[in-house]
Write a protein that binds this DNA or RNA. Structure first.
Lengths: 348, 348
DNA sequence: GCAAAAAATGTACACGCGTACATTTTGTCA
DNA sequence: TGACAAAATGTACGCGTGTACATTTTTTGC
């Protein structure tokens, strides 16, 4: 096929290759002849042969958490990040290979590199567990380019052994809690997610630090744990209702919107309305935040940008910024809506 | 590398290949020797070379609608289908290549096959437009295995020129509208999506057919059009409010949950509550349906199963069922919740 | 125990491309 | 115009598999 193009253009196959790849010096006239010939014959290079010859698949792998039941991860989180990754991948002329992780199976990420199926890797939904840690350590050891998204290993602010793109959930939680305090809340219940996720830890620390700064007491009974699902928030509503009705709590800060909405629904069954009987703040600013009634105050996370950043880092193969830093932490932003609405609280 | 394995096992490279691929007759003893040697050396076959030699990439391509702003397609729809596709792809030992479509650019799907980047294709979010039709026609002409998901070309029930997996939105809409009539509604407003999607057409026809069957009049003013976004539903609420307050409408059937929720929110601003002042039924049964207040009656669509089916069809390369039918239509199911709650309506 | 069939293994090469290196053409300067 | 450098193009080969075909080994049937 390439041979036919070469013959039609009156050149050698090598020249065809050079023209199509824009490499090496080529006379403008021959270039046009080759392109014309290729167009006429409808020649499309065999990507498999190209990858083989170049020893590059051109694929960015993205590992997804197992999500048969969409439970732990809101689909918002997932699809937004993927969208960001996709836009960057597309811009760089690469492709995106989706890799579905089996639940609790040993990860074999290095094999993906050894087989050259992927040139780079982004890991979504990693947890701080033996299984994940060893897999990532292995990748580091071998020097393969990869990036962990929305998860940090080691303490906050510490230098990461590998590329990491995260959002500043510590500051985000601080903002959220400060906002609750600003509107008059003093006893802020907190629904967190599992601490395998650095996200959860960051939020807890942000929550606690503001309490301390503000001279408010830290009350263990106010700190609850769900699993980031709506259902878990809903189930915690019984405890929350008691806390609120007894005056032990006047507000709820949930570590994501799904749990916030679940809690909101559960509390409603106890006759408690967000924005009226208690203030409620979620996290993520998913679509669901705007769909809830009352609309949910939340912390917007730049998931798309995080995806783009991770992709660009891992495809560029470089470190972050001019320095040799291995981790990027993107800012988040509080979005105030009805569930902490001042007017509604006043009308109480 | 393979050579080293061969030497260590004391066989030829061809035998190594045979063992690893489980092809051809191999003595059990040599098989074990080869496997042991491969394990010891940590040999991982080069996927690129395999693909090249086999002339198969092992990739199933999935074309995604452009979704910079997550507007037309709920992320629920998207991630559920993808999840279904993913499970099937994984089970078949293939990989999933994500292909992001640029907005309003000519589609070049055939090139993906010609370059052998993909062995099969699933098209998500196709519309009945020139751009899409010609692209699909081209694929058909060339005989490439592909499947269109959740979209039909040509009239309902007609034989499709290519593989199609859809859900029975006609029956689903009928069920929804019948349910509304069952609970006493007589003037059912209908918010549909753009008619580029066969989904929309099916829902409209289902809606109309039940009205006719039930002897209810068809009123043009009750039929509104949005774009499947929450915002569009919200914006139509003004018209709906007027219809409801003037007694022209007593219920709303929205073609998806997002628009239903948008309408619900908009109507609330007019003092109208779903399940109390009017009945509301959505479609898709996305998570959002359960997150809304009141929880939304909706039509559950087996998105995951559709994804699995499409993947299995297109990877199997076969037709659907024993007959030569080219299209599968999966059943949907009405899920009744509070927004059409009988008890609430009674208390009106 | 021998011939023939069957099973197991080895040998050799193609797959389509990119590219190092050799060769030819073009351009430059005196 | 000739010598030489630079640009343009051609030639040849490797990349790591899978597999058709040739060859060797084992089994079978008598």
């Amino acid at each position: 096929m390439r041979q036919q193009v070469a013959k039609l253009a009156g050149v050698s196959e090598a020249t065809v290759s050079r023209v199509l790849n824009g490499v090496g010096p080529v006379k403008e006239a021959t270039k046009q002849r080759v392109l014309a010939a290729a167009a006429e014959l409808g020649y499309v290079p065999n990507a498999l042969a190209q990858q083989f010859a170049r020893k590059k698949s051109g694929n960015l792998g993205v590992v997804l958490p197992h999500m048969a039941k969409v439970s732990l991860f809101s689909t918002y989180y997932f699809s937004e990040m993927l969208s960001g990754i996709g836009s960057e991948v597309q811009a760089s002329g690469n492709d995106l290979l989706l890799l579905f992780r089996e639940a609790d199976q040993p990860r074999n990420y290095t094999a993906l590199f050894q087989s050259q199926k992927i040139d780079a890797l982004i890991v979504l939904g990693a947890r701080n567990m033996e299984l994940d840690r060893t897999a990532l350590e292995e990748l580091t050891q071998e020097g393969y380019p990869f990036c962990v998204l929305n998860q940090r290993f080691g303490p906050r602010g510490s230098e990461s052994p590998f590329l990491t793109v995260d959002a500043d959930h510590w500051s985000g939680s601080q903002e959220a809690v400060r906002h609750l305090i600003d509107i008059g809340c003093r006893r802020i219940a907190f629904i967190n997610g599992p601490e395998q996720y650095s996200n959860s830890i960051d939020r807890r620390e942000g929550y606690l630090s503001v309490l301390v700064q503000s001279g408010l007491p830290i009350e263990q009974p106010l700190m609850l744990t769900g699993n980031y699902s709506r259902k878990s928030g809903y189930e915690l509503a019984n405890q929350l209702a008691e806390l609120i009705k007894s005056g032990q709590a006047d507000s709820v800060f949930a570590a994501n919107d799904r749990m916030a909405i679940g809690a909101m629904q559960g509390l409603r069954e106890h006759g408690l309305e967000a924005g009226r009987d208690y203030a409620l703040c979620g996290y993520d600013d998913a679509d669901a935040a705007r769909m809830a009634s009352p609309q949910l105050t939340s912390v917007a996370v730049p998931f798309q940008e995080m995806g783009r950043k991770a992709a660009s880092l891992v495809l560029g193969g470089g470190s972050i910024g001019a320095d040799a830093s291995r981790s990027a932490v993107l800012p988040v932003q509080l979005v105030i809506r009805e569930s902490t609405g001042v007017q509604q609280r006043r009308s109480k």
